[in-house]
């Protein structure tokens, strides 16, 4: 019949279909200057952290009493600290710690929160109520105090740190996932899947998870600065990464002690925290623009 002819796609809409949505999203993310700079800085941080053993000019915990409190020079790009350790090397190894804690902490928080969120959103009402009350209670705990209490019990270590972060951040992911699931499960495409006889597991895997990924990636990027802050804060207080291991927090603590004599130590430790925080925040905002259809640029 006459139906088929005019249904052919206009040629200009055909070409971009070959590109994956991820490639398109990436293009849009780096299309703004903030997004591009944020992405570049984050990429540098990640590369620096991953290849720290190759890049770092000195052993980050090697003591050299002769060159204590040296300012920045070509030999020591960021100078040395109170016992002669190279600050540039320590910053790189500190990035390793910060990113490791962020990565494992948020991943664990995300897995836990998303799983509980999907269960609460799809399961019976009483499970939902129990989980909501539990997660709201966890959210109401002051994070630093809670962390200090846990460290007091289990002792300071990176694993404790990751555990604390996972536990205290999971409710945030839970809330987002649960609310999204409650919205998604009333959509026509989920109802359609139900009408086809799809099980809850299938609905969760084929419809919920793909629609949750976008908002969650944004949330992770936004949360990483907070995690870096917690890690540095606890390490600064002596409850996180333990000396002599390098962490931005322990370095800050050193710098704080000698801020009059050698301010470059505090600067060398504080700058990466600020740069990482700002970069991840901007990256999160750029990602939000990509994933949020209401950001105006359309998909």
């Amino acid at each position: 019949m006459a139906i088929a002819e005019d249904r052919a796609a206009p040629p200009e809409t055909r070409r971009p279909l070959a590109e994956s949505p991820f490639a398109k999203g990436f293009q849009r993310m780096v299309s703004s200057p903030q997004g591009a700079i944020a992405f570049a800085v984050v990429a540098l941080l990640v590369l620096g952290a991953v290849f720290a053993p190759l890049i770092a000019p000195y052993d980050p915990i090697a003591i050299a009493p002769r060159i204590r409190f040296e300012g920045p020079s070509w030999a020591h790009l960021l100078g040395t600290d109170q016992i002669g350790r190279d600050l540039f090397s320590r910053v790189l190894y500190g990035a390793r710690v910060a990113l490791k804690v962020s990565l494992f902490g948020t991943t664990a928080a995300l897995s836990l929160g998303a799983m509980l969120g999907i269960i609460a959103g799809l399961g019976p009402r009483w499970i939902d109520s129990v989980l909501v009350i539990f997660c709201d209670s966890v959210r109401s705990l002051p994070m630093i105090l809670f962390a200090l209490a846990v460290v007091a019990i289990y002792g300071p270590s990176m694993n404790t740190l990751i555990g604390v972060i996972a536990f205290s951040m999971a409710p945030g992911y839970f809330r987002v996932v649960r609310n999204q699931v409650l919205v998604l499960r009333e959509t026509d495409f989920v109802t359609a899947a139900n009408a086809m006889g799809a099980s809850r597991l299938r609905v969760a895997l084929t419809h919920l998870v793909p629609n949750l990924i976008g908002p969650l990636i944004v949330l992770i990027a936004m949360d990483i600065p907070a995690v870096i802050g917690i890690e540095s804060g606890l390490s600064f207080l002596g409850q996180g990464i333990q000396p002599p291991d390098a962490s931005w927090g322990t370095m800050l603590s050193d710098g704080y002690s000698y801020i009059r004599k050698a301010p470059h130590i505090a600067v060398a430790a504080g700058l990466p925290v600020i740069v990482a925080t700002v970069a991840f925040t901007f990256l999160g905002e750029a990602l939000r623009d990509v994933f949020d259809p209401k950001s105006g640029k359309g998909r």
Partner: peptide
């Protein structure tokens, strides 16, 4: 469904 666009998963 009444609304064909809403009946299709936007990410599928």
């Amino acid at each position: 469904f009444q609304d064909p666009v809403a009946a299709l998963d936007p990410r599928m």
